[in-house]
Amino acid sequence: MDIQALAQEIPVEGEYSLEGIDFITNGEQYLTFVLDSEHYAVDILCVEEIRSWENPTRIPNAPTHVKGVINMRGVIVPIIDLRIKFGIGDAVYSETTVVIVLTYESSEQSRTIGFVVDAVSDVLNAEENEIKAAPAFGGIIPHHFVNGLVNVGEGVVTLLNVEALQQIEPHEVG
């Protein structure tokens, strides 16, 4: 799926209008998405594809934010609901609920995981100097998931650390 074409198609959510898409500028590109009423973004190079929500197969005794696994072209991909993981908003599933599939390759392994979000919104260009450190206090999201904040117009986009997102904590048995 062509992410950029898709990003253009996706209606920009009401009051939180972001700057116009400018692919020519320097800096990193991020895919921004919405959880409840907040804006988040991940490195666009990690985005494998964007899928619509489908019911996954449950994993026995998995924590609630792990919704299960799906078949993505023969590969078994776990689905994690970021809203539950971060405790933001209601985990409701509708036709507009989307799954962002991210692949992060480290020297040890390459993992592909799908993340449930409320909606995908835009592609964001941000140069390094535009990224500000997140304040150490406040916020529901644990600090190690956050790479920094970017101001976009009136709003703020939180850049997430994909490597940290991809870490899976072992579940308790029983």
Binding site: I59, P60, N61, I76, P78, R111, I113, H171
Partner: peptide
């Protein structure tokens, strides 16, 4: 591969 071993 993409998750972890699951008991059972």
């Amino acid at each position: 591969d993409n998750y972890q071993d699951v008991a059972g």
